[in-house]
């Protein structure tokens, strides 16, 4: 069964690239090609609904000099047009406040550390807020990173109020004249109302100290996530005012296709991708490479 599936996967890939090669402009794609395309998109977690629609668009497309795969690439890149920058950019005369949110184990704490390293390397001063007061050793984990990066970490007692941590971190960031305040929050499933309400409170706590904060609320999404990612994004957008996505763990074999569906439905940009557990394994989002991955053209 394993073998069979593996074979069927690579057959799909082979069929796809074969089909893509044989497609010359001004030729309508045959059904087999379209099915292979649909399958590749589904295998990449784009989701059956989005995949079906994208392929249906190809089917309906008028015959002209743009080949169907080119057309598909272009459509996907257009969806990702907002993802060209690294964010809203630092504000003037006050710390930039960045909040990392997401479901359990998606990569928030590690991403906070990586972002911290990135900003430090850019010559900006950073402070961490350990607002995950819930998970065992959540604070210690961030403290280890803080020590390695020589970045200070504001933390309270385990079980403490996360909003208070956020308040204190913003306060410390402002009084110390820090450039970037990076806040790591506890993992939470988007279905838990009380925990989602806690995010709104965190949001307010930041704004209380620094007007206009948080500047960014990034949803850290595990690239292996399936269609549930869409529900996650919807809820986090609603409760935490998400401004962008970070696709962690893209170094695995999953393609993170649900981010495309999210970018499309919720009009959210993808800012960074995580490519490993190391402090340097963070890169600005590269739409072209990502789309290649979705189409199975990256191998």
């Amino acid at each position: 069964m394993v073998g069979a599936l593996g074979r069927s996967l690579s057959r799909t890939r082979a069929r796809l690239s074969d089909a893509l090669r044989h497609l010359v402009p001004s030729q309508k794609p045959d059904e087999e090609t379209l099915e292979a395309l649909e399958e590749a998109l589904i295998a990449a977690d784009v989701g059956p609904t989005t995949a079906l629609r994208l392929v249906e668009n190809l089917r309906q497309a008028p015959v002209d000099d743009e080949s169907p795969p080119e057309r598909l690439r272009a459509a996907m890149l257009e969806t990702l047009a907002k993802s060209k920058t690294e964010g809203n950019g630092p504000p003037d005369g006050r710390p930039q406040v960045i909040l990392l949110v997401g479901v359990n184990g998606s990569g928030k704490t590690t991403t906070a550390a990586k972002l911290g390293a990135r900003y430090v390397a850019q010559g900006r001063s950073v402070i961490f807020g350990a607002a995950d007061t819930f998970r065992a050793a959540g604070v210690e984990q961030l403290e280890v990173w803080g020590a390695r990066l020589d970045v200070s970490v504001i933390a309270h007692q385990p079980g403490g109020d996360p909003a208070a941590v956020v308040y204190d971190t913003c306060e410390a960031g402002r009084s110390r004249g820090i450039n970037v305040v990076l806040i790591d929050t506890a993992g939470r499933l988007h279905t838990k109302d009380n925990l989602m309400a806690e995010l709104s409170k965190i949001h307010r706590a930041a704004a209380k100290v620094i007007e206009g904060a948080p500047d960014e609320v990034w949803l850290v999404l595990d690239a292996t996530t399936g269609q549930n990612g869409l529900r996650q994004a919807e809820e986090f957008l609603q409760h935490a005012g998400v401004t962008g996505l970070i696709l962690a763990k893209l170094d695995g074999s999953a393609k993170g296709g649900v981010a495309l569906a999210i970018a499309e439905t919720l009009d959210l940009p993808i800012r960074f991708v995580g490519t490993g557990e190391g402090i340097d394994n963070l890169a600005p989002f590269d739409a072209e490479a990502y789309v290649d991955g979705l189409l199975g053209e990256d191998q």
Binding site: V103, T224, T225, G229, A254
Partner: peptide, 11 residues
């Protein structure tokens, strides 16, 4: 992880 998608079989 039950949140995982299509790639779970590979892994």
């Amino acid at each position: 992880d039950s949140l995982a998608g299509q790639d779970a079989v590979n892994t």
